[in-house]
Design a protein around this nucleic acid. Structure first.
Lengths: 238, 238
DNA sequence: CGCTCGATTGATCGCCGTCAAGGTACGTGG
DNA sequence: CCACGTACCTTGACGGCGATCAATCGAGCG
């Protein structure tokens, strides 16, 4: 029994990169007892804004989004979640954002209460989460700068570069190197929701990048970055 | 000597609301040995993006901003700091944003290394910082939604409401209640930098709010919110 | 092969940025 | 206490970027 539970973590693809990466064997065994895996279909939601906050999780595979609906009805995505990312907000009563799978995804879920107990007993867990949260805050603030000050083309370039980097890091199918085929985890509409733009503008800007030979597309979700330097220049431009 | 150092914290105006609020007497004595107060003139910067990350601090009084310059040269403010707020990013090598006083301000500074040592030895300190960072991340994400999806008038209304709330909470001069005089901690230009707008648009939108009788202004920095409900409606509108 | 949903493309509109010209608060010095 | 100067703010005219509305296209699936 014990061995089986441990094995859940042993074959975990993100074990060394996730929050759990720093745990010793005893703590990992305890964690494996608390966690359970769940698969999500594309479009399926893990939780909704306003829900009771009862869970935390690690992303094992796939890409998810954090989003909110404005009172006036349209969506804004405030963050993307890739494998090894942490989901949840310990100590809070309610959930702040919807969490929805963009692709098929798998997560390792912990009930919030026992997870918080684990944090209290394992300092390195709390420390890890603090460092991750600080990083995430920084990511969010950098994105603020994009939404506040950058043109549609710069925002799109920034998103494509970010996706490329994250997909490479997490081994979601992208390899390092120019011209590699990436499978975009987002539809045009979803990209628009991240960028604070409309689907039409996203489509037009993608068209311009294609015409300029900076990228190439393959079907709806295939993407090749042909001129990374040019893309970065566009990202940094106004 | 010991008594004097302790006294530094004893007369601290934000003692119960700051990070240090949860510390016991022994730990507080240790903190008071590490911290030193510093006054900042309006416009003075505590640190710049790219600097070596050598300090953390608590805000004692005044209002400060966190901001970045885009490569193309214009400013975006990514956060505002009020009394009792925490400044700094433990564990990071370099500083992510400029920190500048908007008004006269006072901070209680700790060198980063000893501050991190204190955190390692005082779990509640790390725990407090984690909770604050999670809150701050949430604030930042909510602001993302504004910059991504809201009109100039909704953004401005949101900022005014936020300032009102924070000033009331931190006792910066605002009292609760309709029509109270608030001293805005920001100039029009600084408001524009927060909102991702231009100074002209901010000025025009303020004018509209005045014409509608929602607010009244008094000199450059004086503000009264006459119709809070109307302001909230505008904030929630598209 | 046809259906459906998503993506593209085009035409037009409006918000907000830009450029430009006063105007007003507020500190300074007479 | 008032004149003056400067920095900040307000107001106006105009243009462009991206939203909106609308039609068509095309990928992917049954």
């Amino acid at each position: 029994m014990e061995r089986w539970l441990t094995k859940v973590c042993e074959d975990c693809v993100v074990r060394d990169r996730s929050l759990c990466g720093t745990l010793d064997d005893a703590a990992l065994t305890e964690m494996s007892r608390l966690g359970r895996r769940r698969k999500l279909a594309a479009g399926e939601s893990l939780q909704f804004e306003g829900d009771d906050n009862i869970l935390c999780a690690n992303v094992l595979g796939g890409v998810l989004k954090l989003s909110s609906l404005t009172p006036s009805g349209d969506a804004q995505t405030v963050g993307l979640l890739y494998p090894a990312d942490f989901i949840g907000r310990p100590y809070a009563d309610t959930v702040d954002h919807d969490i929805t799978a963009l692709t098929e995804a798998e997560v390792c879920i912990f009930a919030r209460a026992p997870f918080e107990r684990m944090m209290a007993e394992n300092m390195q867990l709390e420390r890890q989460l603090l460092e991750r949260t600080l990083s995430e805050l920084e990511r969010s603030r950098r994105w603020l700068l994009f939404l506040g000050r950058k043109s549609a083309s710069a925002r799109l370039a920034g998103l494509l570069i970010d996706i490329d980097r994250r997909m490479a890091q997490t081994g979601c199918g992208a390899d390092l190197g120019v011209g590699q085929l990436i499978q975009l985890p987002l539809t045009r509409t979803e990209m628009a929701d991240v960028l604070g733009l409309t689907i039409e503008t996203v489509s037009r800007e993608l068209g311009k990048l294609k015409d300029a030979g900076v990228i190439a597309t393959e079907g709806r979700r295939g993407l090749r970055i042909l001129k990374p330097a040019a893309l970065k220049t566009i990202m940094d431009s106004e």
